[in-house]
């Protein structure tokens, strides 16, 4: 029961309260570049969510099994070359960033193959944006957040397990989709407005983004309030 509460809070936090785009500033490039039409925004959001989930799954697994200090697979392999004590302290976290970026690139390739096979028209409308998801900060950020909750945690019982990691991945993507779809809806209306010349393009998008961020600030404190309310309920 407490576990479900944990998952619920992580999900709400990632999607609304600490929204990836409007609070952590990751995924800004597609937020400004791809948000002109609602249907494209929904497609982009869906693709990012899909890739983020797969990438978080791969990175949690590799971190827990290979990269962490004292991880099972690397200690077992190191046990062949050195004493058991030293093998247990083998720390491969220096390779984290390299492993993560290649995991993300592989996830994007996987998703690209899947979309090309089963949704060819969607694939065509995406064009070059699908491979560009590799350079989307939001995905690497999700992997890094999972890593910081697994490696170097004071209390080993507080380290995130796979369910919590996947919750972050899925709902981080949902939050990104919410932000980008709202922005697309607003921009479709803005196209009909009389915007001064210097503001056209990125400038007005950023200002609208600022107002959206202000609106989302209203969600601050919802998770602590929910936690207090739900934890004290019988």
């Amino acid at each position: 029961m407490e576990y479900l509460l944990d998952i619920f809070l992580i999900s709400i936090s990632a999607a609304l309260i600490n929204n990836f785009v409007l609070y952590y500033f990751v995924g800004i490039c597609p937020f400004i570049g791809v948000s002109r039409r609602v249907d494209m925004a929904v497609g982009m959001g869906g693709a990012v969510t899909f890739v983020m989930t797969i990438a978080v799954f791969i990175s949690w697994t590799i971190t827990s099994l290979v990269l962490m200090p004292g991880a099972p697979i690397s200690s077992w392999i190191a046990g062949f070359f050195m004493s058991v004590d030293k093998a247990a302290a083998v720390d491969l976290t220096i390779l984290t960033y390299i492993v993560y970026i290649f995991a993300i690139a592989s996830s994007v390739q996987l998703v690209e193959m899947y979309v090309r096979k089963f949704y060819p028209s969607l694939y065509k409308s995406f064009g070059v944006f699908l491979p560009l998801i590799t350079t989307n900060c939001a995905i690497l950020f999700a992997c890094l957040t999972v890593m910081s909750n697994v490696v170097g945690v004071d209390n080993a019982a507080d380290a995130w397990d796979l369910g919590e990691a996947l919750a972050l991945g899925i709902f981080g993507g949902v939050g990104f989709t919410i932000a980008i779809v709202i922005m697309a809806g607003i921009r479709e209306e803005l196209d009909l407005c009389d915007i001064p010349e210097p503001f056209k393009g990125a400038a007005i998008t950023l200002i609208v983004g600022g107002i959206l961020a202000m609106a989302f600030m209203g969600f601050t404190g919802v998770d602590s309030g929910l936690k207090a309310a739900l934890a004290s309920a019988p």
């Binding site: 010349e197 393009g201 983004g209 202000m214």
Partner: peptide
Amino acid sequence: VLPPGAFLTFGLLMALVNWVGA
């Protein structure tokens, strides 16, 4: 120093740069 300030400052400065360039 909060997120909205970042967006607004950057947006206004971008408009300024565009205006000067034009």
